[in-house]
Protein backbone atom coordinates (compact mmCIF):
# COMPACT_ATOMS: atom_id res chain seq x y z
CA UNK A 1 0.00 0.00 0.00
CA UNK A 2 2.63 2.38 1.20
CA UNK A 3 4.94 1.51 -1.66
CA UNK A 4 2.22 2.02 -4.20
CA UNK A 5 1.28 5.45 -2.91
CA UNK A 6 4.90 6.42 -2.87
CA UNK A 7 5.36 5.24 -6.40
CA UNK A 8 2.25 7.08 -7.50
CA UNK A 9 3.46 10.24 -5.83
CA UNK A 10 6.80 9.83 -7.50
CA UNK A 11 5.18 9.27 -10.83
CA UNK A 12 3.02 12.34 -10.37
CA UNK A 13 6.01 14.55 -9.65
CA UNK A 14 7.87 13.04 -12.57
CA UNK A 15 4.91 13.56 -14.87
CA UNK A 16 5.89 16.96 -16.25
CA UNK A 17 9.37 15.62 -16.96
CA UNK A 18 8.32 12.48 -18.78
CA UNK A 19 5.96 14.03 -21.30
CA UNK A 20 4.40 10.83 -22.64
CA UNK A 21 3.29 9.00 -19.50
CA UNK A 22 4.14 5.31 -19.51
CA UNK A 23 2.13 4.69 -16.38
CA UNK A 24 -1.30 3.16 -16.64
CA UNK A 25 -2.94 2.24 -19.92
CA UNK A 26 -2.30 5.47 -21.78
CA UNK A 27 -0.70 4.69 -25.09
CA UNK A 28 0.90 7.46 -27.08
CA UNK A 29 -0.71 7.56 -30.50
CA UNK A 30 1.59 7.94 -33.46
CA UNK A 31 0.19 8.37 -36.90
CA UNK A 32 2.52 6.95 -39.53
CA UNK A 33 2.07 7.37 -43.26
CA UNK A 34 2.98 4.24 -45.17
CA UNK A 35 2.62 2.76 -48.62
CA UNK A 36 1.31 -0.82 -48.85
CA UNK A 37 4.63 -2.21 -50.11
CA UNK A 38 7.02 -4.97 -49.00
CA UNK A 39 9.32 -2.36 -47.45
CA UNK A 40 7.06 -1.69 -44.48
CA UNK A 41 6.84 -5.34 -43.36
CA UNK A 42 8.90 -4.71 -40.16
CA UNK A 43 6.50 -1.96 -39.07
CA UNK A 44 3.52 -4.26 -39.48
CA UNK A 45 5.40 -7.10 -37.79
CA UNK A 46 6.12 -4.83 -34.82
CA UNK A 47 2.45 -3.88 -34.61
CA UNK A 48 1.33 -7.50 -34.88
CA UNK A 49 3.87 -8.76 -32.33
CA UNK A 50 2.92 -6.02 -29.88
CA UNK A 51 6.39 -4.42 -29.83
CA UNK A 52 4.94 -0.92 -30.09
CA UNK A 53 2.38 -1.56 -27.38
CA UNK A 54 5.22 -2.76 -25.14
CA UNK A 55 6.85 0.64 -25.68
CA UNK A 56 3.60 2.41 -24.81
CA UNK A 57 2.90 3.34 -28.41
CA UNK A 58 -0.16 2.89 -30.55
CA UNK A 59 0.64 3.03 -34.24
CA UNK A 60 -2.07 4.28 -36.54
CA UNK A 61 -0.95 3.57 -40.09
CA UNK A 62 -2.39 5.67 -42.84
CA UNK A 63 -1.94 3.93 -46.15
CA UNK A 64 -1.93 5.86 -49.35
CA UNK A 65 -1.23 3.66 -52.32
CA UNK A 66 0.41 6.37 -54.36
CA UNK A 67 2.21 7.88 -51.39
CA UNK A 68 1.51 11.40 -52.64
CA UNK A 69 0.20 12.73 -49.32
CA UNK A 70 2.99 11.35 -47.12
CA UNK A 71 5.65 14.06 -46.96
CA UNK A 72 3.24 17.02 -47.38
CA UNK A 73 1.17 15.48 -44.60
CA UNK A 74 4.24 15.33 -42.37
CA UNK A 75 4.90 19.04 -42.91
CA UNK A 76 1.25 19.79 -42.17
CA UNK A 77 1.40 17.84 -38.92
CA UNK A 78 -1.00 15.15 -40.12
CA UNK A 79 1.60 12.46 -39.43
CA UNK A 80 4.42 12.12 -36.92
CA UNK A 81 6.38 9.76 -39.17
CA UNK A 82 6.43 9.06 -42.86
CA UNK A 83 7.82 6.16 -44.84
CA UNK A 84 9.22 7.51 -48.08
CA UNK A 85 11.94 6.91 -50.65
CA UNK A 86 15.30 8.59 -50.14
CA UNK A 87 15.13 10.79 -53.25
CA UNK A 88 11.75 12.32 -52.37
CA UNK A 89 12.93 12.93 -48.80
CA UNK A 90 16.14 14.60 -49.98
CA UNK A 91 14.29 16.75 -52.51
CA UNK A 92 12.13 18.02 -49.65
CA UNK A 93 15.24 18.72 -47.56
CA UNK A 94 16.77 20.58 -50.50
CA UNK A 95 13.68 22.79 -50.52
CA UNK A 96 14.28 23.65 -46.88
CA UNK A 97 11.91 21.19 -45.20
CA UNK A 98 13.32 19.90 -41.92
CA UNK A 99 12.98 16.14 -42.43
CA UNK A 100 15.27 13.97 -40.33
CA UNK A 101 15.95 10.26 -40.75
CA UNK A 102 14.55 8.28 -37.81
CA UNK A 103 15.23 4.79 -39.13
CA UNK A 104 16.20 2.90 -42.23
CA UNK A 105 13.45 0.98 -44.00
CA UNK A 106 14.59 -0.86 -47.11
CA UNK A 107 17.57 -1.37 -49.39
CA UNK A 108 18.55 -3.45 -52.38
CA UNK A 109 19.70 -7.04 -51.97
CA UNK A 110 23.32 -8.20 -51.88
CA UNK A 111 22.77 -10.46 -54.88
CA UNK A 112 20.03 -10.96 -57.48
CA UNK A 113 17.08 -11.29 -57.45
CA UNK A 114 16.89 -7.62 -56.56
CA UNK A 115 13.84 -5.49 -55.80
CA UNK A 116 14.01 -3.26 -58.88
CA UNK A 117 14.17 -4.64 -62.40
CA UNK A 118 14.11 -3.31 -65.95
CA UNK A 119 11.79 -5.17 -68.28
CA UNK A 120 11.27 -5.01 -72.02
CA UNK A 121 9.22 -6.84 -74.61
CA UNK A 122 10.75 -10.02 -75.94
CA UNK A 123 12.10 -9.81 -79.45
CA UNK A 124 12.73 -6.05 -79.46
CA UNK A 125 16.46 -6.59 -79.14
CA UNK A 126 16.72 -3.99 -76.37
CA UNK A 127 19.26 -5.14 -73.81
CA UNK A 128 21.12 -2.04 -72.63
CA UNK A 129 20.70 1.65 -71.90
CA UNK A 130 22.40 2.34 -75.23
CA UNK A 131 19.56 0.51 -77.01
CA UNK A 132 17.05 2.67 -75.16
CA UNK A 133 18.32 5.99 -76.56
CA UNK A 134 15.50 7.68 -78.43
CA UNK A 135 13.04 5.26 -76.86
CA UNK A 136 10.49 5.49 -74.06
CA UNK A 137 10.97 4.09 -70.59
CA UNK A 138 8.24 3.94 -67.94
CA UNK A 139 8.81 4.95 -64.33
CA UNK A 140 6.10 5.20 -61.69
CA UNK A 141 7.02 8.84 -61.14
CA UNK A 142 9.88 11.05 -62.09
CA UNK A 143 12.40 12.14 -59.50
CA UNK A 144 12.14 9.26 -57.08
CA UNK A 145 14.48 6.41 -56.22
CA UNK A 146 13.03 4.14 -58.91
CA UNK A 147 13.67 6.68 -61.64
CA UNK A 148 17.11 7.56 -60.25
CA UNK A 149 18.30 3.96 -60.30
CA UNK A 150 16.74 3.44 -63.72
CA UNK A 151 18.69 6.38 -65.15
CA UNK A 152 21.87 5.21 -63.43
CA UNK A 153 21.35 1.83 -65.10
CA UNK A 154 20.89 3.46 -68.52
CA UNK A 155 24.20 5.28 -68.02
CA UNK A 156 25.96 2.22 -66.64
CA UNK A 157 24.98 0.15 -69.66
CA UNK A 158 26.32 2.70 -72.12
CA UNK A 159 23.32 4.95 -72.73
CA UNK A 160 22.78 8.69 -72.34
CA UNK A 161 19.92 9.17 -69.91
CA UNK A 162 19.04 12.52 -71.49
CA UNK A 163 18.21 10.72 -74.74
CA UNK A 164 15.77 8.36 -73.04
CA UNK A 165 12.24 9.68 -72.64
CA UNK A 166 10.65 8.94 -69.28
CA UNK A 167 6.92 8.29 -69.27
CA UNK A 168 5.09 8.23 -65.96
CA UNK A 169 3.03 5.06 -65.63
CA UNK A 170 1.67 3.82 -62.29
CA UNK A 171 3.06 0.41 -61.28
CA UNK A 172 -0.25 -1.46 -61.65
CA UNK A 173 -0.54 -0.39 -65.32
CA UNK A 174 3.13 -0.83 -66.25
CA UNK A 175 3.00 -4.41 -67.49
CA UNK A 176 0.05 -3.67 -69.77
CA UNK A 177 1.65 -0.47 -71.08
CA UNK A 178 4.86 -2.36 -71.85
CA UNK A 179 3.20 -5.41 -73.38
CA UNK A 180 0.88 -3.14 -75.38
CA UNK A 181 3.81 -1.24 -76.87
CA UNK A 182 3.13 2.17 -75.30
CA UNK A 183 6.62 2.11 -73.82
CA UNK A 184 9.78 0.24 -74.82
CA UNK A 185 11.03 -0.56 -71.32
CA UNK A 186 9.89 -0.07 -67.75
CA UNK A 187 11.53 0.25 -64.35
CA UNK A 188 9.62 -2.07 -62.05
CA UNK A 189 9.72 -2.48 -58.32
CA UNK A 190 8.60 -5.60 -56.46
CA UNK A 191 5.95 -7.01 -56.18
CA UNK A 192 5.21 -5.69 -59.66
CA UNK A 193 8.29 -7.40 -61.16
CA UNK A 194 6.97 -10.79 -60.10
CA UNK A 195 3.45 -9.75 -61.11
CA UNK A 196 4.50 -8.70 -64.62
CA UNK A 197 6.58 -11.81 -65.22
CA UNK A 198 3.82 -14.06 -63.94
CA UNK A 199 1.06 -12.46 -66.01
CA UNK A 200 2.97 -11.39 -69.14
CA UNK A 201 5.94 -13.76 -68.92
CA UNK A 202 5.38 -14.94 -72.48
CA UNK A 203 5.92 -11.45 -73.83
CA UNK A 204 8.14 -9.63 -71.30
CA UNK A 205 11.71 -10.28 -70.20
CA UNK A 206 14.05 -8.84 -67.63
CA UNK A 207 17.16 -7.12 -68.93
CA UNK A 208 18.62 -5.53 -65.83
CA UNK A 209 18.76 -5.01 -62.09
CA UNK A 210 19.05 -1.23 -61.69
CA UNK A 211 20.17 -1.25 -58.05
CA UNK A 212 22.40 -4.29 -58.12
CA UNK A 213 24.19 -3.22 -61.28
CA UNK A 214 24.78 0.40 -60.28
CA UNK A 215 25.15 0.46 -56.49
CA UNK A 216 24.60 -3.01 -55.01
CA UNK A 217 22.59 -3.08 -51.81
CA UNK A 218 22.13 0.68 -51.81
CA UNK A 219 19.40 2.37 -49.87
CA UNK A 220 15.81 2.79 -51.07
CA UNK A 221 13.57 4.18 -48.33
CA UNK A 222 13.53 5.46 -44.75
CA UNK A 223 11.25 6.67 -41.99
CA UNK A 224 11.46 10.41 -41.41
CA UNK A 225 10.03 12.87 -38.90
CA UNK A 226 10.21 16.63 -38.48
CA UNK A 227 13.31 18.04 -36.80
CA UNK A 228 11.30 20.18 -34.39
CA UNK A 229 9.18 17.25 -33.25
CA UNK A 230 12.32 15.13 -32.77
CA UNK A 231 13.98 17.82 -30.66
CA UNK A 232 10.94 18.18 -28.46
CA UNK A 233 9.81 14.55 -28.21
CA UNK A 234 12.99 12.63 -28.97
CA UNK A 235 12.13 10.01 -26.38
CA UNK A 236 8.91 9.04 -28.18
CA UNK A 237 10.85 8.44 -31.36
CA UNK A 238 13.42 6.39 -29.48
CA UNK A 239 10.61 4.14 -28.37
CA UNK A 240 9.31 3.99 -31.93
CA UNK A 241 12.73 3.01 -33.28
CA UNK A 242 13.28 0.37 -30.58
CA UNK A 243 9.98 -1.33 -31.42
CA UNK A 244 10.50 -1.00 -35.17
CA UNK A 245 13.95 -2.58 -34.90
CA UNK A 246 12.46 -5.50 -33.01
CA UNK A 247 10.13 -5.81 -35.99
CA UNK A 248 13.19 -5.89 -38.27
CA UNK A 249 14.67 -8.63 -36.09
CA UNK A 250 11.42 -10.55 -36.43
CA UNK A 251 11.27 -10.18 -40.21
CA UNK A 252 14.91 -10.71 -41.20
CA UNK A 253 15.28 -14.39 -40.18
CA UNK A 254 11.85 -15.19 -41.65
CA UNK A 255 12.53 -14.25 -45.27
CA UNK A 256 11.46 -17.68 -46.45
CA UNK A 257 8.86 -18.22 -43.74
CA UNK A 258 5.15 -18.41 -44.68
CA UNK A 259 4.38 -16.35 -41.57
CA UNK A 260 6.13 -13.34 -43.11
CA UNK A 261 4.31 -13.75 -46.42
CA UNK A 262 0.99 -13.99 -44.57
CA UNK A 263 1.84 -10.77 -42.76
CA UNK A 264 2.69 -8.96 -46.00
CA UNK A 265 -0.39 -10.35 -47.73
CA UNK A 266 -2.56 -9.06 -44.89
CA UNK A 267 -1.54 -5.42 -45.25
CA UNK A 268 -0.72 -5.22 -48.95
CA UNK A 269 -3.54 -7.54 -50.07
CA UNK A 270 -1.18 -9.05 -52.62
CA UNK A 271 -2.12 -12.75 -52.93
CA UNK A 272 0.30 -15.07 -51.09
CA UNK A 273 0.92 -17.13 -54.25
CA UNK A 274 2.27 -13.98 -55.92
CA UNK A 275 4.39 -13.08 -52.90
CA UNK A 276 6.17 -16.44 -53.09
CA UNK A 277 7.83 -15.28 -56.32
CA UNK A 278 8.70 -11.83 -55.03
CA UNK A 279 12.22 -10.67 -54.12
CA UNK A 280 12.19 -9.09 -50.67
CA UNK A 281 14.34 -6.07 -49.88
CA UNK A 282 17.01 -5.89 -47.18
CA UNK A 283 15.62 -4.27 -44.03
CA UNK A 284 18.33 -2.01 -42.57
CA UNK A 285 17.91 -0.33 -39.18
CA UNK A 286 20.46 2.42 -39.52
CA UNK A 287 20.90 5.27 -41.95
CA UNK A 288 24.55 6.07 -42.67
CA UNK A 289 25.94 9.42 -43.86
CA UNK A 290 27.77 7.53 -46.63
CA UNK A 291 24.61 6.05 -48.15
CA UNK A 292 22.81 9.41 -48.00
CA UNK A 293 25.82 11.07 -49.60
CA UNK A 294 25.85 8.44 -52.35
CA UNK A 295 22.21 9.25 -53.19
CA UNK A 296 22.91 13.01 -53.16
CA UNK A 297 25.86 12.51 -55.50
CA UNK A 298 23.82 10.34 -57.84
CA UNK A 299 20.93 12.81 -57.76
CA UNK A 300 23.30 15.60 -58.86
CA UNK A 301 24.35 13.49 -61.84
CA UNK A 302 20.75 13.17 -62.99
CA UNK A 303 19.60 16.75 -62.73
CA UNK A 304 18.48 16.82 -59.10
CA UNK A 305 21.50 18.58 -57.63
CA UNK A 306 21.49 21.54 -55.30
CA UNK A 307 22.61 22.55 -51.85
CA UNK A 308 22.11 19.84 -49.28
CA UNK A 309 23.05 19.94 -45.58
CA UNK A 310 25.82 17.57 -44.45
CA UNK A 311 24.29 14.05 -44.43
CA UNK A 312 25.36 13.40 -40.83
CA UNK A 313 23.25 16.36 -39.67
CA UNK A 314 20.15 14.80 -41.24
CA UNK A 315 20.30 11.61 -39.23
CA UNK A 316 18.54 11.48 -35.87
CA UNK A 317 20.28 9.52 -33.13
CA UNK A 318 17.89 6.56 -33.43
CA UNK A 319 19.11 5.85 -36.96
CA UNK A 320 22.77 5.78 -35.91
CA UNK A 321 22.32 2.36 -34.34
Amino acid sequence: MNAITRRTALALTALPLAAPPLIGQTLTKLRVSVIPVLDVAPLHAAIQQGYFAAEGLEIDTSTTAGGATGLPGLVAGQFRLVFSNTVSILLGIREGLDFRFVAGASAGTASPPDIFAILTRKGTGIATGKDLEGKRIASNTRNNIVWLRGMAWVEKTGGDWRKVTTVEVPFPQMADALAGGQVDAAIFSEPFVAGALASHGDRLERIGWPIFETAPGSTVAQYVAMKEDLERNGEVFERFARALFKGVDWVTPRRADPALLDLIAAFSRVPVERLRQVALPTYPKAVTPAEVQEIITTMSRYGMGGRFPAPASLIFRTANA
Binding site: T63, G195, R274
Partner: peptide, 12 residues
Protein backbone atom coordinates in the same frame (compact mmCIF):
# COMPACT_ATOMS: atom_id res chain seq x y z
CA UNK B 1 -12.14 4.65 -52.99
CA UNK B 2 -9.23 3.49 -50.87
CA UNK B 3 -10.21 -0.14 -51.37
CA UNK B 4 -10.25 0.37 -55.13
CA UNK B 5 -6.71 1.74 -55.19
CA UNK B 6 -5.44 -0.85 -52.72
CA UNK B 7 -6.76 -3.66 -54.89
CA UNK B 8 -5.28 -2.07 -57.98
CA UNK B 9 -1.86 -1.92 -56.35
CA UNK B 10 -2.21 -5.45 -55.04
CA UNK B 11 -2.75 -6.64 -58.60
CA UNK B 12 -6.22 -7.96 -57.82
Amino acid sequence: GHYLVLMQFAGR
